[in-house]
């Protein structure tokens, strides 16, 4: 870790469709698109807040990175209005169709271009792709340790590392790790701050750089569809009876009929 330079913190944010504006038409099984807004992935606000908390405590430059279409610069501006110093949109048609393997490769190339980093924060998962794979994969690419599902964070070793509470299904671990490290954040970690007017004005005027595949020196074979080993083979809409149905018969029969339907719907 570079000793004398300012601390460098990166937050990865993803633009996702706003869960509240996304409605499904269960009859046709399609997304009702009207008025779907793009927002920052909810977990990523906690990643931003974690980065800013570290900045407040230790002094640092915080850079937000997003891979997405050019409109994703809105997400960067929003992060900046909360106090993030700079941001980059990594955007290129060649990135389309990325799975998490290609995504982590692309993000890692962009982050490496930013120089040595001390800490990288990611959300626990993105609400659309929902894999929770980007954080751990990115850590491997950057060659740094990763601590997932973090719900508490404290600076230790005189500002050289972190003590983190990592949640598991049946409890938690307290772990300690020196910088550099990648952390994925739960919503219980913190309460994201509100934007500030001054930062909002600055963000509005800021020129957000857009980095293409060429800018980050990406290997064409490893990005987008080419670099994505997983591919969607087929999709189907789970059967869903929107209409009310009374289940008749004896209690036993009623229960059996219900279980049959729940199994068909894939909920049990």
């Amino acid at each position: 870790m570079p000793e004398d330079k300012v601390m460098n913190i990166v937050v990865c944010i993803k633009q996702v469709p706003d869960a509240e504006s996304v409605k499904w038409d269960h009859k046709t099984g399609t997304l009702i698109r009207d008025g779907v807004k793009s927002v920052i992935n909810p977990f990523d606000y906690h990643a931003i807040e974690a980065a800013l908390t570290l900045k407040d405590e230790l002094g640092a430059k915080v850079t937000a990175v997003t891979m997405g279409p050019p409109q994703a610069e809105e997400a960067i501006r929003e992060a900046m209005s909360m106090g993030v110093d700079e941001g980059v949109v990594v955007s290129d048609r060649a990135f389309a169709g990325s799975d998490t393997l290609a995504t982590t490769y692309t993000l890692s190339r962009a982050i490496k271009r930013l120089g040595d980093v001390h800490a990288v924060f990611c959300g626990k998962q993105a609400i659309d792709g929902d894999t929770a794979q980007v954080g751990p994969g990115l850590a491997v690419r950057l060659g740094i340790p990763c601590v997932t599902y973090v719900s508490e964070m404290e600076v230790i070793n005189g500002g050289k590392g972190l003590r983190l509470k990592r949640l598991k299904e049946d409890g938690f671990d307290m772990v300690e790790v020196d910088f550099p490290v990648l952390v994925t954040t739960l919503s219980t970690l913190n309460t994201p701050r509100v934007p500030s007017l001054k930062a909002k004005m600055k963000a509005k005027r800021a020129k957000i750089p857009v980095w293409t595949a060429g800018d980050i020196g990406a290997d064409k074979k490893r990005i987008g569809l080419n670099g994505s080993p997983t591919k969607v083979h087929s999709t189907y809409i789970p059967k869903f009876e929107a209409k009310r149905e009374f289940l008749e018969g004896s209690p036993e029969e009623q229960v059996d009929a219900l279980i049959k339907r729940l199994k068909e719907a894939g909920v049990i």
């Binding site: 701050r193 509100v194 934007p195 500030s196 007017l197 001054k198």
Partner: peptide, 20 residues
């Protein structure tokens, strides 16, 4: 504290004193 973080307390204060 949120209003302070949002710079709203500085809304009506002249810029030379840190306001907007």
């Amino acid at each position: 504290k949120d209003l302070a973080q949002a710079d709203l307390f500085g809304l009506y204060i002249p810029e030379e004193y840190g306001g907007l």
